[in-house]
């Protein structure tokens, strides 16, 4: 769809610096949050987000970038960056550290709980199919609606809802034992 994003994109393709800056300013925070929730590391999230924009610039330069649906293109690249990151992680034997800076106002107990919950969720998400992972991440970590998700995953809205249902059911099967374990 040609939208304001696409108008920006067309200008960006012509090398318009203002348009490229506007794209960065618009999409960097949501993409960073989307990635951070999946990798739980500020440093990694910063690197991967920077990589998304680097790939955008490369694609624009080569003329292989998106012609439209800029948001969908960026989230697809972000998703691939996360997938690649975990693929590389499989060859390493360490877990990401909790790098969130704790300020004086933060409640350390709550932060720890959030971290454990997020970690458990991330672990469970890894057992979903790639499509299911993507739909759940886009919905809950990216805050996107069904129409936007449908564009990103290139599937009809009905298929997105079906994926969402199967993903939540699978998460429920995996998370319930975890919760029971934690409460014991």
């Amino acid at each position: 769809m040609t939208t304001d994003y696409d108008a920006l994109l067309q200008k960006a393709k012509r090398g318009d610096r203002l348009a490229l800056t506007a794209i960065y300013d618009t999409f960097h925070p949501p993409l960073y949050r989307y990635i951070y929730r999946q990798v739980d590391s500020e440093e990694t999230a910063r690197d991967l987000t920077a990589d998304v924009f680097h790939r955008l610039l490369q694609a624009l330069q080569k003329g292989t970038g998106p012609d439209q649906y800029l948001q969908a293109w960026l989230y697809r690249v972000a998703h691939n960056a996360v997938v690649d990151f975990y693929r590389r992680q499989q060859h390493r034997d360490h877990l990401p550290l909790l790098e969130q800076v704790i300020s004086a106002e933060d409640d350390p107990v709550r932060l720890a709980e959030d971290h454990i919950t997020a970690a458990a969720l991330r672990q469970s998400l890894r057992h979903l199919t790639p499509d299911q992972q993507q739909v759940i991440a886009l919905k809950f970590f990216g805050g996107l609606n069904n129409q936007e998700i449908a564009l990103i995953v290139a599937k009809p809205i009905g298929a997105v809802k079906a994926l969402q249902h199967r993903a939540i059911a699978a998460l429920q099967r995996q998370l319930v034992p975890v919760e029971e374990e934690l409460t014991v």
Partner: peptide
């Protein structure tokens, strides 16, 4: 299950200095 997902607080953004550094790096690449 989804309540747990929905209740997660928004991921914190990096510190302003780090954000600025990332932005500058991008602009340099541009």
């Amino acid at each position: 299950v989804t309540a747990v997902l929905a209740a997660l607080p928004p991921a914190p953004l990096p510190a302003a200095a780090a954000r600025q550094a990332d932005r500058q790096a991008f602009l340099a690449e541009v």
